[in-house]
């Protein structure tokens, strides 16, 4: 197996995307704060974007589609980060904490 030729194979990109997704799931389960969970969510979105880019490079007849979809994923991720940040700040004002087990009652 030639490690230097891995950049030309589709599987290596897919494996990298799968590993990123797995790390994101791991962080999402492990984290105890809302901000940490948001960071792991960004990793999962990045893994999805990498898969779209891979398929547009190797498989799609029209490579523009995957690229534009990746740009849209980035836009959605930016909107999600802004909304998530303001929700975290609102939660912090009410509970003085962003630990997920402190924020346990609905009647804030």
């Amino acid at each position: 197996m030639n490690f230097l030729a891995l950049a030309n194979h589709m599987e290596s990109y897919l494996v990298l995307g799968a590993l990123l997704f797995g790390v994101g799931i791991y962080g999402m389960m492990l984290r105890r704060t809302l901000i940490g969970m948001m960071i792991s969510g960004e990793l999962i979105l990045a893994a999805a974007a990498l898969n779209f880019m891979t398929f547009s490079r190797f498989l799609a007849p029209d490579p523009v589609t995957g690229r534009i979809f990746t740009l849209f994923i980035m836009g959605i991720a930016a909107a999600e980060a802004a909304i998530g940040m303001s929700i975290i700040i609102a939660v912090y004002r009410n509970y003085k904490s962003v630990e997920t087990d402190q924020v346990a009652e609905l009647n804030g």
Binding site: G17, L19, G22, I25, L30
Partner: peptide
């Protein structure tokens, strides 16, 4: 933490097997 790591590894391994 071990359960989190196992679940993440399970997802990653499943996707890798599927991709290959």
């Amino acid at each position: 933490a071990g359960f989190s790591a196992a679940l993440g590894a399970l997802f990653a391994a499943g996707l890798i097997v599927l991709a290959r």
